[in-house]
């Protein structure tokens, strides 16, 4: 359980980081929080020959509001997201999802951007990025800055649309007006573990009617799964106060469960994951309405 040997470099600026990535993109790996990378290195499942530690690069951490967008720096720690202020639906959603990310000593180090770049389809930030159609801002020396929509960003488990010489710099999320009802629910057998299935939802509700619906599911595919069927079921419908037991929630849950094609593994077989999609979708919708 000791990593194989690597060269360690610690750039002190973004330009220096991009230069380093440019020199040797295939063999380099960016080290931010390290909470997923280092375990894989300890198991020798990952063996980069060069680690580029971006923890001392200024300007990569923190959040800022730009008009109707919230921009989250790539090295913003999970704990900083959990401690974010704001009573708007987006801030509430981010805080509630952050509370599910590992445990406190993981959240003090692990980063928002690192989690996205790791592209684990069950992880909280990947789901939320996909739910809200976030924009990933990536940068390289060769091609400068470019933006990748979340829909195109996650290619597979541990694989994103970023080129090896690119760094995820920041992520831009749409701020949500008060008409939005967001929720996040996940099921893990043990506190703090990766979810077997996680569901996050965002409904825009006007005069009691759903005008816009987004449903994103983790643990059922290689990438975060947007359930078009569930979204279509919800849009245009009137929300009951007791959504958890409402026919609408049941219909949305059934739509999502029929649409997904989950894998079977030691943590749960496909029928069980479908059951969890039903349960977590219902619970996520209920959270939104309870607010």
């Amino acid at each position: 359980m000791k990593p194989s040997s690597f060269e360690y470099v610690r750039p002190e600026s973004l330009a220096e980081t991009l230069d380093l990535l440019h020199q040797d993109p295939e063999e380099s790996k960016v080290l931010a929080g390290g909470q997923s990378l280092v375990p894989m290195m300890n198991f020798r499942l990952a063996r980069p020959s060069r680690l580029i530690d971006i923890n001392r690069v200024p300007g990569l951490a923190g959040t800022r509001v730009e008009g109707d967008r919230l921009v989250i720096g790539t090295r913003t720690r999970h704990l900083a997201v959990q401690n974010m202020s704001g009573a708007d639906p987006l801030a509430r959603l981010l805080r509630s999802a952050a509370a599910h990310v590992g445990h406190l000593p993981i959240r003090t180090r692990g980063t928002f951007g690192g989690s996205l770049a790791h592209s684990d389809a069950a992880s909280e930030w990947c789901l939320i990025a996909r739910l809200l159609d976030a924009t990933m801002v990536v940068e390289s020396r060769a091609r400068g800055r470019r933006e990748i929509p979340a829909a195109d960003f996650f290619l597979s488990i541990f694989t994103t649309a970023m080129e090896p010489d690119e760094l995820l710099v920041e992520v831009s999320l749409p701020r949500l007006g008060d008409e939005h009802r967001t929720g996040f629910a996940e099921f893990a057998r043990r506190a703090g573990d990766f979810a077997i299935v996680a569901v996050t939802t965002d409904l825009a509700v006007e005069k009691g009617v759903v005008t816009h619906a987004r449903v994103c599911i983790g643990g059922v595919a290689d990438t975060p799964f947007r359930s078009g069927a569930a979204e279509a079921t919800l849009v245009g419908q009137r929300l009951d106060d007791d959504i958890a037991t409402s026919p609408l929630a049941r219909a949305a849950a059934e739509a999502a469960a029929s649409e997904v094609d989950p894998p079977s593994d030691a943590h749960g077989d496909a029928p069980y994951r479908r059951d969890l999609v039903r349960a977590m979708l219902t619970s996520s919708l209920a959270q939104g309405v309870a607010r």
Binding site: R10, V38, P105, I106, T108, R109
Partner: peptide, 18 residues
């Protein structure tokens, strides 16, 4: 688990050089 700048961290998930 130890404290780094006052915050609990996993010392097995950080390289000493960091």
């Amino acid at each position: 688990t130890i404290l780094a700048d006052g915050q609990p961290i996993r010392a097995c998930l950080m390289f000493a050089v960091q």
